[in-house]
Amino acid sequence: MAKYGALSSRDRKGTGMDRRTLLAGVGLAGLALGSSALLTSCTEDATPTPTDSANTDAPTSDDANVIASAAANEVALIGRYEQVLAAGSALTPAVANLLTEILQQHRLHLQALSVDDFAPASQTAGVTPTLADLTAAERAAADERTLSCESAADPNLARTLALIAASEASHAQALTTAGSR
């Protein structure tokens, strides 16, 4: 059962859109004061439940290919971050923290794609990627996720891929900012 369905549990219950409309139209006030509560409730919503799984249709074979290709790319990204962090010595603590956080987010992407058994990335021997390499890889990943999203049949998969594309675009921007400091 695909976990990516769990990210949209509120929408399947028919309540997600109402709340988002409310947030968008009314809730700027929540941003400064109440945002942590909102984020908490969103996180809880994202927790997979048996109901979610039961309601999620098995992916079509085309979607299975979309998922497999996105997952393979996430695995490759995870490998590159692990390589940089393992080499580690030249990183400032701030950059190392950022890379660790981004690595963790790629693991969450992989999880959301519901790929539990994957071959670990073959550690590419040789040159350790630079920040610029990682930035380029994130941009390419965001582009790939955008294309995958277009070919996804399941709307829930499309939503997940759209979120991952946005996440990876933000990684590229954060790495650019970190690199220019």
Binding site: A46, I164, S170
Partner: peptide, 14 residues
């Protein structure tokens, strides 16, 4: 969002 000082998220805004 990052340009304004936000931190990256795995599922932005979720």
């Amino acid at each position: 969002s990052i340009s304004w000082g936000g931190a990256p998220e795995a599922f932005p805004g979720r």
